[in-house]
Amino acid sequence: MNRLVTNLGMGLVFSFLIAPLMVVGGVSLNAQKRLLFPPEGLSLRWYDELFTDLAWLVPVKNSLVIAACSALLALLIALPLAYFLWRYRVFYAKALFTLGIAPFVLPPVITALGFLIFWVTLGFYGHMSAVVISHGIFFVTLPLVTLSLGFESMGDDIVEAARSMGADEGMVFRSVVLPLVRPYMISGYAFAFVLSLNEYIIAYMVAGFTVETLPIKIFNSLRYGYTPVMASVAVMFVLLAVGVFALVARFGDLPKLLGKV
């Protein structure tokens, strides 16, 4: 009885979460431009358009470049920060960590407006590099959290052991710490990459009219001219996210990364 209720509830939540994705999948494979019920005809023409039409390929490229660079930037900021916080328990460590978490806790529209005003003031409004830096700062939280978990799980004794064998600070970091923390680096990068790819408001506020990313392109075509290509983009995004997170789960312990003891 208990099992039945649980499975029923899980099934309902699953249907709620999967239903929009199913519909989007249906639209992307529908032969006609207008989706009617029941659908008629199968075709891959919307995928074909996505991969051949420059109007879609340029946003794809922009989004991928921004996501790849900003996730790297986030990782490069988070790695030394997390290491420092773990290695030297200074009194302001908590303040630094909070600073790293803050962008993620506040509603993103606030951060986005802050970046907009900042880049307008500096004169970099509308540049792709401004989007990369903004995303890099905004998504620092993700590698910072995964790396902190990684360092915590390592224990101080391993560093002490290396030190007592005569390794200096740099050697300890390169030959002991870095290999052990690598899965957490990869997952932090993966989280930041996927979320940057899907981020709308910051990219829009910082450079929405000059650098078109995929979410911006989808929103524009949602407003000013419906096309089923949007659906095929959405399907690609979902598949990519599933792929990335499945890889993270394959090479790391996903429940542990998400805070299970």
Binding site: A19, P20, L21, V23, V24, V27, L35, V194, L195, L197, N198, E199, Y200, P215, I218, F219, L222, M230, A231, V233, A234, F237, V238, A241, F245
Partner: peptide, 14 residues
């Protein structure tokens, strides 16, 4: 990780 744009789009169809 789904963008709000995609969520809005899919629910508008659904």
């Amino acid at each position: 990780s789904l963008s709000e744009v995609i969520i809005g789009f899919s629910w508008s169809i659904l």
